[in-house]
Design a protein around this nucleic acid. Structure first.
Length: 490
DNA sequence: TTAGGGTTAG
């Protein structure tokens, strides 16, 4: 098993005679069910040589459409460099022209890799083709700057929109406020809000975004202040405003205040909605008040409101965490019985619950079940199961799932690599450390930056297990990547 | 991709 993994990605899956066949032939291979075309092409891109990729993609067998290209980019999401390679090669195609949404995916991917120059170049190309950039393109770039720790750049992006041929309006202003708030730069958002709220004629959405921002950083009094201000300025609070504040109280562990606020909402004849109830079910439950959580759920049904998938998910998670998986599964069956279709989150919550109570195999069964029900396991699903396998010392089973991800349609992400690399230190075996090194190299190649801690840990591990040569190889890779993370002397 | 409720460890 380990040996298989040690093979470089390019050499993996060499049963690729299928690969060279035109796609028309591929569909006749008696394999059931045939993978969707975007999965096939994504795999082809992953395993092909960058030098010949253009030629491969020029094959007239491929019927490129914006939808197909978008789906391929989504599949390659967790292999940014390959995704961009694919996009750029196709950009040189003699007849096909990328759509706005494909460009926006590419901008997103480039900015996530912190290749901001590439992102700007793509936007320049959009403009040259008269496809944009659109307000959404700027929103994407701003969000990537903000999540990459460059909030000031995000604001600059917004302020410079008009210079790139894109008009600033209230929507784009609200978007930048939201981006800053969601990345916890609430003070910065507040400054921008105070400075420009007159110019953009802020509406309830703007105030709701700010209130939510303060709640996210647990400063509920400031959120109340926003509520007060909006009323003073003649902007009516909405259900979103109230639900935001309610959630804020729960986030701070202020259960009594949350309850009082809920009663106040009722007293003022607010049309308490399903979001209000979901917030309550979740809030009381995760605080350990399972009975109260269930009571709220029952009260909601009694009042004639229909629980949504999110409401069921909240209750199921609460039962998994604070009660028993058995009871959570009863609720799962109940929701299905009532015709409420479980979604990805439902399955992920149940699978985590099962794994946490030591029933990993049942969790894996649920993975099969979700697939049968047309809900494909996500990278989070895999990560949960892999993590619990590793915690239980079943590294091989975790690696088996990891292999399945690589072969199939759900590429591993940063978390997956971190989980597996950490697991490689448990047995203190030389071969495990070598595998950790291979994983480290692979993740860097896919555009994920390991933390310094991870780098040093792997290097130290390799040196201590006598793999000095390999440790040096990793160091060379590290210096090639232009980042000096080394704190270890070999 | 203009706002609020479900997945992220005890």
């Amino acid at each position: 098993m380990l040996n298989q993994l040690l093979v470089k990605p390019a050499q993996r899956n060499l049963n690729t005679s299928r690969f060279r066949l035109p796609l028309a032939t591929l569909t006749t291979v008696p394999e059931s069910p045939p993978p969707p075309i975007d999965a096939t092409v994504a795999k082809l891109v992953l395993e092909s040589d960058p030098k010949t990729l253009s030629q491969t993609l020029s094959n007239p067998t491929f019927q490129w459409t914006p939808l197909l290209v978008d789906n391929i980019l989504k599949r390659l999401w967790n292999h940014g460099p390959k995704a961009l390679q694919f996009f750029k090669h196709l950009d040189r195609h003699p007849t096909y022209i990328h759509s706005i949404s494909s460009f926006e995916h590419a901008v997103d991917i480039a900015a996530r890799l912190r290749e901001y120059n590439t992102a700007w170049a793509l936007m320049g190309r959009m403009r040259a083709l008269r496809l944009g950039p659109t307000p959404k393109t700027f929103a994407i770039l701003a969000e990537r700057y903000a999540t990459g720790g460059k909030a000031h750049k995000a604001v600059k992006v917004f302020l410079s929109m008009h210079e790139h041929g894109c008009h600033q309006d209230l929507n784009s202003f609200n978007t930048i406020l939201d981006v800053l708030c969601k990345t916890k730069r609430v003070e910065m958002a507040n400054n921008l809000f105070k400075t420009l709220r007159g110019r953009f004629k802020c509406d309830s959405v703007s105030y709701n975004i700010m209130a939510n921002g303060w709640c996210l950083i647990k400063r509920t009094p400031m959120a109340l202040q926003v509520l007060k201000e909006m009323v003073e300025r003649g902007v009516d609070p909405t259900m979103v405003t109230y639900n935001t504040l309610l959630k804020g109280y729960f986030r701070c562990g202020q259960l009594n205040e949350a309850w009082e606020f809920f009663l106040e909402m009722k007293k003022r004849k607010c049309e308490i909605d399903v979001v209000t109830y979901t917030t309550m079910v979740h809030g009381f439950g995760v605080a350990g008040e399972v009975k109260r959580s269930k009571r709220v759920f029952d009260a909601m049904v009694k009042e004639g409101l229909v629980p949504s998938v999110a409401t069921y998910n909240a209750l199921i998670q609460v039962l998994c965490k604070k009660d028993s998986v058995q009871n959570a599964l009863l609720v799962f069956d109940e929701m299905v019985g009532k015709g409420c279709v479980p979604n990805l989150t439902t399955y992920n919550v149940v699978i985590r619950g099962l794994c946490h109570s030591g029933e990993i195999e049942r969790g894996v069964e649920f993975m099969k079940r979700m697939e049968e029900n047309g809900c494909m396991p996500s990278v989070q699903t895999y990560n949960v199961v892999i993590r619990y396998y590793c915690d239980e010392g079943e590294l091989e089973k975790g690696l088996e799932l990891f292999e399945k991800m690589g072969n199939g349609t759900c590429l591993p992400n940063l978390d997956t690599y971190n989980i597996l690399i950490s697991a490689m230190f448990v047995r203190k075996k030389s071969e495990d450390l070598v595998l950790a090194g291979k994983l480290l190299i692979e993740m860097v190649g896919r555009g994920f930056l390991p933390r310094k801690f991870t780098f040093n840990r792997v290097l130290n591990g390799l040196v201590l297990t006598g793999n000095r040569e390999f440790a040096n190889e990793i160091l060379r890779m590290q210096s090639r990547s232009g980042r000096v993370l080394r704190h270890v002397k070999l």
